[in-house]
């Protein structure tokens, strides 16, 4: 089960932090379809936040079709992110790691890597690939 964390200084709304963490877990495969999300009570007893904030986050995830609430049972993961299964994920990650090694050998530092990655990502989205 997912363990939520809060970054109180981030300025990001609390419910959005919860939404992001669920999505992140879905991407990494630590949450899979059929998994149950913690109940609002479990979350607030750990984080000391308003229960409505948790419900708001779960509603948002439900709206995006990622989870479904089953009355009396809890909230369950409906689907992961399109196509990228765990095997696929691992393969892509390996490819990216190889690319990072290559770039480092070419003398790029971390800042350069980020800038390059962001530029490619932005180009790709402009072309409508992503």
């Amino acid at each position: 089960m997912i363990e939520f964390q809060l970054d109180r200084g981030s300025g990001v709304a609390t419910y959005l932090q919860l939404v992001h963490q669920v999505k992140h877990a879905l991407r990494l495969g630590t949450l899979r379809p059929g998994d149950q999300l913690p109940t609002a009570r479990e979350v607030v007893e750990k984080l000391a936040i308003n229960p409505n904030t948790v419900l708001k986050a779960y509603r948002e995830l439900e709206r995006e079709g990622l989870v479904t609430g089953r009355p009396g049972l809890g909230t369950f993961v409906e689907r992961g992110f399109g196509g990228a299964g765990l095997a696929e994920h691992t393969r892509l990650r390996r490819g990216l790691a190889a690319w990072v090694r290559e770039a480092r050998d070419a003398g790029l530092d971390e800042e350069d890597l980020r800038a390059l990655f962001a530029a490619v990502l932005s180009d790709a989205s402009r072309e409508g690939v992503a």
Binding site: V44, K46, L47, A48, I49, N50, P51
Partner: peptide, 12 residues
């Protein structure tokens, strides 16, 4: 934090 966790748990 503990006091608030108690209260929020009861609200939920």
């Amino acid at each position: 934090h503990d006091v608030m966790r108690t209260l929020m748990g009861e609200v939920a």
